[in-house]
Design a protein around this nucleic acid. Structure first.
Lengths: 203, 203, 203, 203
DNA sequence: ATATAAACGAGACGGTACGTCCCGTCTTTCG
DNA sequence: CGAAAGACGGGACGTACCGTCTCGTTTATAT
């Protein structure tokens, strides 16, 4: 990860066990898939993984942090930088359509639903939570900003009067449908969203 | 509410105490304002209100139901039927602007934030939760549908290609900003949202 | 009105369950007999008895108090008032001999050994511990004081120069042999003790 | 290679293990004096002494062994062989009196109390514990046996009918008063004890 | 007026999980 | 190589609440 630190401190003593960490994450993930966030307990993870409770607390401050990390480990938010390069050279419409289809697919899985719920119910003050929010939920929003700004520069779209409002209008509905479940999260939804947005960006 | 029952059962014995119910709701509300959803316990409500635990369980199945009712008692979702009749005779723009300013105001209070969080983290399967979702979060969305449909009928707006997507694009951002806190929920936000929406509805 | 007990408070709420208390005591006793004081844990008692841990803590502050009560429930210290009336009308020699034989018998059982060890290792500051010490260990000493004083009054024995020292000389060896195990606690021991004491009390 | 370093082996940069041992003992002793046996933990000793936990385990099998050694290091039990030669040439009375005054003084200190408690509550099966019992608690008893036998040989005292019982009657009360605390451990106590014993040994 | 019965407060119950402490063992790195 | 540092799996601690269950006490209605 970092070759930056010039002389890393020698770190005496037994190093933390990557195996224990991985076992705990795996068990937490399995419990979340089987039983849901409300049934995830540190005690249960310890029992299921064979990792000691104090070891779990050495790695995560509480069950919510563990849940977030277990859910988002190796979870690539569609549109996030370096994920797939959606619509890099394509039109705004194609780029957005591709991103929203991927987002709809990603968040309509059990795991996606659990991620959204975990982030929605986590302690809003926690720095840890905030980091996950930015990385998982707001990352696609930032990717969208890039696509729109590029399209405006190309003259493909009119500069929107309020880019922040526009971004929320695009990305909030994903979160909204996942959490409220009042309508499906499918390709038609992605299509409608992109169509409406492009109307607002017509020159 | 309904005098429909033809012969009300004699109802012997002491009737449930409205006072106990009110005291519990008040205590729950106070705890939620002071300490947040995570610290709301039935035990705490019983202690603070002087109401017995079994009495609380007679009225609500768990702390989440109590929380939802405590938060939304006498809470009028802006735009909900009979609340203020926003923009009834006015233009679509005026109606939406008024509704979103009211929504932003309502959900930027502590109470509004707590309501959004409680609904987001409540058991999604519960019928009780669903009812609150519809009443509190989706009510304004339905009001918006009415305004837009009337405007289309008047010829003031073009019929949108996907009305559900449009409604989500309008109302999801409120929930989104409340939960994620990445941007403020103020009049400028309301303004931007309405402006962008009207662009998408240009004839 | 009532000239009976001066108005005992009505004791609202569900009364403590005598059954739970008894089950916990029984389980603690069994564990002590099977495995010893060092292996007695609240957790173990809860598991073995089917009584909840918090219920155990409602009755006893810690494992030591539970151990003391479990061991001494229905344990009659030989010589304690109302136990057997040892040597009431008999000679000092007969009275002491009978008491010491009974003491030797009582404290050479597993239970007696555990009682002595529990008291020896219990927190010396605790009021609870002190009460058990007085009731179980020092009770026979007080009975002995009565027998000796009566004998002196009858002219059967010379008044000892230091009655406290004499009492310790009689009763300490029981505790001493139980705890240190350097010599057996049998009838010969009782005999020797009484003989030596009577020599010191010769007129 | 090296031609006969007469004074010191090279001692290339490795701290001697005796230092670690001493530091651990000192820290254990301090904790025992400050907080008592129940608060002595290997973890605490390691933290306070700067000695590693595994190093402590190399020297002692558990906290009780460490406690016993920490308490009795440089502790001379009065009357033990080679300690002071109490009453070697003196009368039985003078010898016993001197020994008991010293015992009372030694065991009425905090350290003496802790020693007695540690031995009383230590695992009775352990060989290590037994050794300390013999060295610390029973040593004075054996010294007393020597004094009495010498006095009998000199014709100064009558041969007691049960020497073991007599020795327990003399030495048990010290332990008894230390552990139960029902009466002080002072010179008057020593005096009374010796007086009563001599009465039993009158020719 | 007096039962009858429902709901009340209080509070103990069997549980589950919490987060902490310490155990005794095991790696790893340094002197 | 021995000793420090320190993470590990494990077990028990004592506490907080859970949701349920007696208790003895009101309080309305129905006799």
């Amino acid at each position: 990860m970092s070759q930056s630190t010039p002389t890393q401190p020698p770190r005496r003593g037994r190093p933390p066990s990557a195996a224990a960490r991985a076992k705990a994450l795996r068990a937490a993930h399995d419990i979340l898939m089987d039983e849901g966030l409300g049934r995830l307990t540190i005690e249960g993870v310890a029992a299921r993984s064979g990792v000691g409770k104090p070891t779990i607390y050495r790695h995560w401050a509480n069950a919510q942090e563990l849940a977030l990390e277990a859910l988002t480990a190796r979870f690539d938010t569609p549109g996030a930088p370096g994920v797939d390069g959606a619509g890099q050279g394509a039109s705004l419409e194609a780029g957005l359509r591709e991103q929203f289809r991927a987002l709809a697919r990603a968040f309509s899985t059990t795991r996606g639903r659990q991620i959204a719920r975990s982030i929605a119910s986590a302690d809003p003050e926690s720095e840890f939570t905030r980091a996950f929010r930015n990385r998982v939920i707001l990352a696609s929003r930032e990717a969208g900003r890039g696509m729109i700004e590029a399209a405006v520069q190309r003259g493909e779209a009119a500069p929107p009067p309020d880019i922040e409002a526009l971004l929320d209008m695009l990305y909030a509905p994903v979160f909204y449908r996942v959490l409220l479940g009042h309508a499906p999260l499918d390709d038609a939804f992605a299509e409608g969203l992109v169509t409406m947005a492009l109307r607002a960006l017509r020159r």
